[in-house]
Write a protein that binds this DNA or RNA. Sequence first.
DNA 1: GCATATTTGTCCGTATGTATA
DNA 2: CTATACATACGGACAAATATG
Lengths: 222, 222
Amino acid sequence: MSGEKNEGGDRSLAEAVADQLREALIAGTFSPGQKLSEQQVAAEYGVSRNTLREAFRFLTSQRLLTYVQNRGVFVATPDAEAVIDIYRVRSVIQRGAVQMATRGHPAFARMHALVLQGREYGASEDWRRVGTINMEFHRAMVSLCDSPRLSSAFDLVLAELRLAFGQLDEGAHLHAPYVSLNENLLTAIESGNAMDAVAELDAYLLKSERGVQAALQRKLSR
Amino acid sequence: MSGEKNEGGDRSLAEAVADQLREALIAGTFSPGQKLSEQQVAAEYGVSRNTLREAFRFLTSQRLLTYVQNRGVFVATPDAEAVIDIYRVRSVIQRGAVQMATRGHPAFARMHALVLQGREYGASEDWRRVGTINMEFHRAMVSLCDSPRLSSAFDLVLAELRLAFGQLDEGAHLHAPYVSLNENLLTAIESGNAMDAVAELDAYLLKSERGVQAALQRKLSR
DNA sequence: GCATATTTGTCCGTATGTATA
DNA sequence: CTATACATACGGACAAATATG
């Protein structure tokens, strides 16, 4: 008995559709730059164009879709410049997180659990889940700030980054080598030595960004 | 021929309405927590309910309006907790900005010009303009990062803060004492000594936040 | 607690302008 | 250049939820 409409629960239909569309976008269901026809997508999700347009507005403000006047919406295609900018934001926000970290914060427990899970999934070579765990680890790190606004800003760039991953063929196993880096990062933060933690963070981000940029180049030159 | 509709230019009508509404919200036209009726506001702006709802979605995602299921939208009322969070975000982002600042960046010229303008308006006791200049100064500071995403994240919390200002009776002259602080901050950043600059930034933010919180308390206890 | 009026949530039909084949 | 397709925006309609007396 799969509910066809409003499976989201008590959210508005527009938000539910936006959530479903976001998942589809991140999963790489659509090709980058693809045009999303209002009529077609509305029919596909069984909602009216008005409702769909509300959902489109939502996703556009999150940079997952791009609006072109009188032409409609298109799947965003993060390019090299976008990736640079995303990692610039990550650097600023996550540096703030490691410096603001307080001993005994509940987020540490979650980060430890995620490191363990990441190792497990890594052992079974389930790279998709490893990627998800990796994202969650860094979200937990930002939650050290106890700042809803900082967390949602971080979620924004992370969603955009996941969109980029979804558009890369082998996006999932890009996360593979970073499981142990996260572990080092976690111990550095918990040690309380801010300098070490920032250095470890910079190393992670630099390596991660290089991996993404390289994959992006491989895709473009093909 | 003066275009009667879409005076905003080439943006969509929903975005134009959202911009107008944002200005009205920031100017304190509505009372905090006030309910915005779809019918009423749509009639007031001469747009259909569907178009207005798109604009509402936009402003809701910017935290200027609050959505309540089946009850409609209300003017957001930033409370003490929100102000704390906003300044936490400012601290993280602006620390990033002063540390990322590179010598000779064009933003410095703009910041100098804004300091001068601020002094002028301060001399003529035009506190409203002083407030605007102050905001622009800090936006220019963040633009030192050359990061569109960081700038738009900053714009978001700044808009929310301006909404809070608009809801305070004497919001405008809250900015008065900070003209000279901005000047000190600017010279500290340009000196290249990151430690000094961060210290100066912290001093500014602490003082500014205290001013806002105090005004907020005065308003609540009245 | 109930009946009624209001408002939101959603959809449809349609007219107009814009871009593209 | 014309024609087609589509986005834009409007107004009306109705069910469901909420507020009001």
